[in-house]
Nucleic acid binder design. Structure first.
Lengths: 336, 336
DNA sequence: CTGTTAGCGCGTTCAA
DNA sequence: TTGAACGCGCTAACAG
């Protein structure tokens, strides 16, 4: 509403040309120390802030990145955003956030917009529905770098920052086997997400290494009600498992909730381990062992990669596949 | 990198002038139906996306809002972001996110940047350090509307969306009093945050209405270690309370953690209630009663207000003080 | 060292 | 109904 200060105004005030002002503000070598100081002093006094969009238009650089993810109602993504935003602020970049709500259609619509040069780069975690990658490849082809974090899209050749999902699935299963579990159920929110499938592979691998062949994979939908239904059926079946791997945070909560609905808590003879960043997992009853991802680090690492490729065009994202190990945190009932 | 499609390119391809293309794309009445269709068809075919920055520069409107908040590592803010982003996407706006990490200095730096027209409006929740409001008033004076949500700044005259904090502090205290508590401690993360102080007022009010005069306010810092120390001292004192109100989610977690460190859990004779949106509070041991804020609704309501003021300049934000009631969720030990 | 000029892509005049 | 021209604010190339 109020007209902001522009270079032109500064120029008129100092009897200089706009070009000179622009250079002076950028500390260009071709401007005398005197004028530089004069200009910078006035700019500061008048609280001059350059119009970012004018400069973007001219330089074809926006100093802005997009973060595209399913939802933030999850402690993993919350922490990841913290990491991303920190690095972005350090590098002078701005962060646009877009949520797909696990919808492929939204994801496509959002990416299409980026054809216009709104952002210089994209950090993304794909939706559970994402089963093809044309939209992603298209945006990369148009020259905008993409770095995946956590939920990657396997058939796209670009940088990824993940945890060792196969390995952690394996570790989770071993943890239960060590506790004497004979029938382990692996709960999944989607059979399309690479990250979940890797965890499942690890789980299967662990089973294969023992004589125990009674592992089962249960696909719960992403819908809360259906999810509860599947879990309920599982817990109430005669052949119920004695070990459960919840491959996502939501599922862990669901297991606890359903259990307390049907029998006032998780039966002592069922061990549960979850892929979760819940910091209060140790306070649950019984305490929940978790495979925890260093979310902040994943976010900041992904952002760092992206900025490297933005600074140096020779930096090749295709070669980057960073795996950050997840943590197995064993928590056992102290009472029991 | 690849040159994107521009109006000029479309113009050349169709033997029309850029001006005509621009109008045709906007469905202007002064363009014939025929050309409009031709233009729009080609635009779609070539996947034309207008350059947002050029249009911003010209129209002095960015279709972008900023969300400024302390951190997202908290379920309240996570859910609030979901609400904000939903409404923004519906209205065709983009969302920039900035974290202050509870630092006033960062908050000021961030707001200063907005002088430039980067955003059309701001949604914010102030940092715990924020004890003056010049930076906020300045940005409002420059014509950029601000809507506070959750953590407001009292002495700034603009729209606020909050929960009924005084009332909920009162409710929380009553809940404990009903359970027979005689000595209630109110834990606070800051004595500067209006929202926390309101909750405290409610707490004091409830105490005044009874004969019980043994309420105490403990200021924990925002630092995790110090916080734990204060709580530990509190729990181990001879005169320890029999009721605790945790005025923020972090504090609730801290109480549980500290308790389990010093005596394997919260003593049965201490009742705890927390201001928290933790969805797994019911799974804690003992279950945690909570005052829960409808975070998604708060976020979406704040965003809606902001967009209203952006669409209609006559809409006056100053008159808007929306209070969305929080929910007291009583959770009692079923076993005990 | 400083000024001039041109143009980034778009939208809005005003003419034709 | 269409086209030509200007300018949003900034930067870069080139002159002076």
């Amino acid at each position: 509403m109020n007209n902001p200060i522009t270079i032109k105004i500064l120029a008129k005030a100092l009897n200089l040309s706009p070009g000179t002002i622009s250079k002076a503000l950028k500390d260009s070598y071709e401007i005398s120390k005197e004028t530089k100081e004069k200009v910078q002093a006035l700019a500061k006094a008048l609280n001059y802030v350059p119009n970012p969009y004018a400069s973007s238009l001219r330089k074809k650089i926006s100093n802005t990145i997009a973060v595209v993810l399913p939802e933030v109602a999850d402690s993993f993504f919350s922490q990841a955003i913290n990491g991303i935003e920190s690095i972005a602020q350090d590098n002078g970049y701005h962060v646009l956030i877009y949520l797909t709500h696990e919808s492929l259609a939204r994801e496509e619509t959002i990416l299409e917009q980026f054809q216009s040069g709104r952002v210089d780069g994209i950090l993304m975690s794909v939706s559970a529905e994402t089963n093809h990658s044309e939209h992603i490849e298209k945006i990369i082809a148009s020259g905008i770098p993409v770095v995946f974090f956590d939920r990657i899209c396997e058939n796209v050749e670009t940088a990824c920052v993940t945890t060792d999902d196969l390995e952690s699935g394996y570790k989770a299963a071993c943890h239960l086997l060590e506790q004497g579990c004979k029938k382990i159920a692996f709960l999944s929110i989607s059979d399309k997400l690479a990250i979940i499938n890797m965890r499942m592979e690890g789980f299967k691998k662990a089973l294969k290494e023992t004589d125990i062949k009674t592992g089962a994979v249960k696909i719960c939908s992403n819908n809360e009600a259906e999810c509860a239904k599947t879990i309920k059926k599982l817990l109430m079946s005669k052949n119920r498992p004695d070990g459960i791997i919840a491959s996502a945070e939501k599922l862990a909560a669901a297991v606890y909730t359903v259990s307390s609905e049907i029998n006032l808590g998780i039966p002592a003879d069922i061990k549960v381990i979850a892929f979760s960043n819940l910091q209060i997992a140790s306070l649950l009853n019984p305490p929940l062992s978790t495979i925890t991802q260093p979310a902040f680090e994943i976010g900041s690492t992904a952002a760092t990669l992206l900025f490297k490729s933005l600074e140096k065009s020779k930096f090749n994202l295709k070669d980057q596949r960073i795996v950050i190990p997840s943590l197995l945190i064993k928590r056992a009932s102290t009472v029991n």
